[in-house]
């Protein structure tokens, strides 16, 4: 059973390699050196690489932001959310409508985008979070479809064609219109998302989510308000999606309902689960897989989703904690 599988056996070479890696990075100096080296490399990458590479990397950063948001809902709070693209759409369309219809500056639309996502999160979360977990999955899926269909049918959202002419953001007098601009913008967003995720994970709030995930009744008996905690996860996660959506709209300058389909929610979900839900490096790894694999081999094309689906199945069956390795020693030390 599951219990036995998790029992550590420090015998295989792979595990000892992983353990020595973990040991290596236990050292703060090494860890920060590695982090600085990686960030430094990513900072100078645009001047070294082609437009195409920058485009892919921007997309990767974008995925990291969105998926870390979804990770708060799925990985931290254990709620299966199948309509996450809807929250991303809420952000993108808030910015899109305000910018293209009313000419409001991009930065001013951001708070509205977050507020809209929080309201949408409350509207869907408040009545449903007391339901059984699998009902929540269906409700979020239905909500995702309602959002997409509504966007498609309304005039203010531009119907099936969508919105065009969304203004580029201006940052200290520079109009952000180069791919390298967006590269840096999404890079900063991704760093922020990682930062916020780390802080939340190791906190009173993060622990509350973990208690609830482990045993809802015991958590309630310990004085944790289950519904409110989940609602927090829902709102914070949705806000991540909305912010990413706003920046997405600004980058594309045109958005249409086709960018917010169920399949996008599924891609985000896959990125979160493949690497290892709840683990920040795991989610980043998942994003790398989901974004880079189709780019490495263009021939994959139509098989892309099929391959991911098989990977997802195999991961769930044999390694539900995802590809990112667990530290093998935690329970072996005693």
């Amino acid at each position: 059973m599951a219990e036995n599988k998790k029992k550590p056996k420090l015998t295989t070479p792979l595990e000892s390699i992983i353990e020595s890696l973990f040991r290596f990075f236990d050292n703060k100096v090494y860890r920060y050196t590695a982090l600085f080296a990686a960030s430094g490399f990513l900072l100078i990458l645009p001047s070294l690489s082609s437009r195409f590479t920058q485009e892919i990397m921007t997309n990767l950063f974008f995925y990291v932001v969105v998926c870390l948001g979804l990770n708060i809902i799925i990985g931290y709070a254990g709620l299966l959310h199948l309509g996450y693209a809807a929250f991303f759409a809420v952000g993108a369309y808030t910015t899109g409508i305000m910018s293209s219809r009313f000419g409001i500056d991009f930065w001013l639309t951001l708070p509205f985008s977050v507020v809209a996502a929080v309201l949408a999160g409350l509207a869907i979360g408040f009545p449903t979070l007391r339901l059984r977990g699998d009902y929540l999955a269906i409700v979020t899926l239905g909500f995702g479809e309602i959002t997409r269909l509504t966007i498609r049918n309304l005039d203010i959202t531009g119907g099936a064609v969508g919105l065009i002419g969304i203004q580029r953001p201006v940052f200290f007098g520079i109009t952000l219109n180069q791919i390298s601009h967006f590269y840096y913008m999404f890079f900063i967003l991704a760093i922020l998302a990682i930062f916020v995720s780390y802080r939340l994970h190791d906190s009173r709030m993060g622990r509350a989510w973990e208690y609830i995930r482990e045993d809802e009744d015991a958590a309630a008996a310990m004085g944790i308000n289950v519904t409110t905690s989940r609602l927090y996860a829902f709102i914070i996660g949705s806000s991540f999606g909305a912010v990413a959506g706003s920046f997405f709209a600004a980058k594309m300058t045109a958005i249409s309902p086709d960018s917010f389909m169920f399949i996008h929610s599924v891609m985000f979900l896959m990125a979160v689960v493949l690497g290892g839900m709840g683990k920040i490096p795991g989610v980043v790894l998942g994003c790398i897989i989901v974004v880079l694999i189709p780019e490495i081999s263009r021939d994959i094309g139509q098989y892309r989703l099929l391959i991911f689906a098989f990977m997802l199945l195999i991961i769930m069956l044999y390694r539900p904690q995802g590809i990112w390795p667990d530290r093998p020693t935690i329970s072996a030390k005693e």
């Binding site: 299966l80 977990g133 699998d134 979900l269 997802l312 199945l313 769930m316 069956l317």
Partner: peptide, 9 residues
Amino acid sequence: LITALAVSM
């Protein structure tokens, strides 16, 4: 649930 979703895909 995620397994079922994978099968569907």
